Simulated scan of single mutants.
Amino acid sequence: MDAFDAIPDPVVIDILNKVRDVKTLIRCRSVSKRFNSLATESGSLLLQLDQIGESDSEKDSTITSFFRSLFKSVNGLFPIFSKPAKPARILTPVQILAGFNRIRNLDVEFYGGDFKLEKGAAVKWKAEFGESLKSCVIVAFRSATVNTSAIDGDAETDSEFVSGLKTRVVWTISALMAASTRHYQMRDLVKEHKEMETLTVRDRDGEGAVVMDAAGMKEYRETEARGDEKVSRERTVVPNVRMSMRNAPSLKLESGICLEAATLVVVRQSGVASDGDDAELATGAFGDCMYGEAVAALLKRRSRDGKRRTCPRARPV
C-alpha cells in the first residue's frame, strides 16, 4: 500500500487548505479519485481571475500590433489550412468553483488595477459591503519621496484646496465605482455559497479591496430573496453616504517618507457613527504599512470644514 494512503483525510484536507489556489486544486482533482473528492472539501480558497476586454487591445505596443497584423495577413494566404479561431470561453466565478461546496473563506483577485494615475501617484481603498456599501476608506497621494528633512506642510489656502479638490473628488468617485462594480460581480457567488464567512475581492496591483463578512452576505441574500431592485446592470448602486476628508499638501511620515497631496477620505452610510468610529474604521483599514502610517498621520489633522459632507444618492452610470 502507498504510504500516502495511510494519511487521514482531515490531514490531507488541511494540506490542501494551505494550497488555497483554485487552479492548482482543480488540477489535483485529476490525480486520483481520492484527490477528486478531497480537493473540493477545501474551505479556504484563492481564486485568480483575468480581466479580458476591448481595452486590452489598446495596451498593445506598436510592434506587437504590427506582428499581429502581419500574422493575420500571412494566415489569410492559406485559407485551405487555416481554421477559424474559436472564441475563448470565459467562465464565471460560480462556474469555476462548481463542486467546491464547503467554502468558508474566499479571496478573489482580479488582474490589474482600476485607476489610470499619473506617474508617482497612488490610491488605496478598502470598502465593506452588505446589500450595499457600508463604508469605504480611501488614502491617496500624488507622489512619495524619501526626504528626512521634509516638514509637514502648513494648512493650505482656500485656492490651493480648490485646485486640488477636483483630483480628490475623482479619486473618491473612482474608488466607489470600482468597489460597487466588484460587489455586483460577486452577486451570484454570494447567493450560491451560503456557508461562506468571509469574502475579499481585490486586484493584484493592491489598489483596492471589497470585504463582505457572514452578516453582510446574509443581508445581501435576504435582499435578493425579497426581489428588491437595488442594483444596476454593471454595479451596485451606492446609497446615501456622508464623507469626511482630511488632506495635507506635504505629509512627513515617521519612516522618513514624504507624501505630496496626501488625502484621507472616510465614506459611511448617512446617519451612522461618529468621529471616533470613523477614526477607528480608518485606522484598521490598512494595517501597519505605509498607507496605515499615512492614515494615522492624517487623522491627527482636522477635517477641512470640521463637518461631515453628505452626498446625494449616486446614480448608476
Score class of each variant (00 low, 15 high):
K18Q: 14
K307V: 15
L281S: 02
A178K: 01
L49Q: 01
V266D: 12
V74L: 09
M243G: 08
R221C: 11
K300D: 13
W171L: 09
W171K: 00
V94H: 00
S143T: 08
A214E: 15
A215Q: 06
F286G: 07
P10I: 02
V162L: 11
P316I: 00
V241Q: 01
V266L: 10
P93Y: 02
K134H: 13
T200F: 08
R29N: 12
D305Q: 09
S180P: 11
P79R: 01
K194V: 15
T148H: 09
Q95K: 06
A127R: 00
L189F: 03
F141W: 11
G43S: 10
E41V: 07
P87K: 01
M217D: 04
S82E: 12
G153I: 05
I96Q: 00
Q51H: 13
A155H: 05
E280L: 12
R202V: 15
P79G: 06
V266I: 13
E260C: 04
R301Q: 13
K194M: 15
G99H: 04
P87C: 04
A279S: 10
E260M: 06
S37T: 14
I15D: 03
E58R: 01
L91C: 09
D9G: 05
T92Y: 02
K83I: 15
R187P: 14
I103K: 00
L45Y: 02
T263V: 13
T223H: 07
E118Y: 06
A175S: 10
S174Y: 04
A140L: 06
L106F: 04
P79D: 09
G216R: 01
F78H: 06
E128A: 10
N101W: 06
T263C: 11
D188K: 08
G130S: 13
A175M: 05
S132R: 04
I63F: 12
F35S: 06
L47A: 01
D154M: 08
S61V: 07
A225D: 10
L298M: 02
V108C: 04
N17S: 04
R168W: 09
R302M: 11
A122Q: 08
R233H: 14
A282K: 02
S73W: 12
R27E: 13
K230G: 15
V210A: 03
F81C: 10
P93M: 02
A225N: 06
S274I: 14
S73L: 12
D21H: 06
S69T: 08
S65A: 13
V123D: 06
C289P: 11
R89M: 13
D228R: 02
A121R: 00
K307E: 15
L106A: 03
V137D: 03
T236F: 12
T200K: 03
A150M: 09
T40C: 13
Q48I: 14
